[in-house]
Amino acid sequence: MSSNRITVKNMTDKEYFLGHKACAGCGGSLAVRLALKVFGDRTFAALPAGCMSAVGFIYPQMAFLNNAIISTFPGTGSMLSGMRAGLDALGVKDAHVVGFAGDGGTADIGLQALSGAIDRREKIIYICYDNEAYMNTGVQKSGLTPYGARTTTSPAGNNLPGSVMQKKNLFEIVAAHDIAYAATASVGYPQDYLNKLSKAAAVEGTSYIHIYATCPTGWGTPTETSVSLAKEAVDSGLWYLAEYEDGAFTLNRKPKEFFPVKEHLLKQGRFKHLKDSDIKVIEEARDKKWKRMLEKWN
């Protein structure tokens, strides 16, 4: 890394996402705040319905100090294309066009628009803050809700373990477009995220960062554990730090030994009900994924 890289020590003191109404310990708001510190005030942001628009656009106490607009729920990718076209028409060349959308807004209803935007090779940055359910509407399952998580629409009981689906493999779906730059990140590894934000800002073409973002309200976790839990998710292998560029995948972090999955999951209200047999399903899915990643990725 070059000496002028952005770190938590040298990053700007200026805030661009300030005074928002997010819950204490919100990972999504941390992802937005750090991203805007890297991108700066020449950032034109679009956010669909979701937590960050709900907590950021409460008129007259607007939390964005850069330009920002709420897109339709399915339309974030399309709106980003339109914004870039508009800036091009005005001759504005020094601005970032950035989307911030949650897991539902990205992996479910917004996937078609995102795919179109990537396919057009737009010069835009798309950041998915993944808190693993529709949190703004009161915790409903999304395509990125992991197996075993209890939500209001994936109830847990004697007959059901919570969500019976594994997380949709969105990072690789995005990469399959042969996107210019894609990465996964976690609010538990801020320096890794900052590096990836800098890369996304510099790349020609479309970039996508998928950041794992803790949600104490939806996950049933203490607010002060948001960063440590997001770190633990990576250390336990349930999330991973990776990049896709120039047609190749790279794993940025390869834990020698995984943090115990059971210990990690049982700290969270949404997983409290899991039986050992459910944990085994989760571990097996993790191992299968890691085997493939370690074999095929750099």
Partner: peptide
């Protein structure tokens, strides 16, 4: 999901 009808799906 959409508020204010989320209790129906739940």
């Amino acid at each position: 999901p959409i508020t204010p009808q989320n209790e129906i799906p739940a």
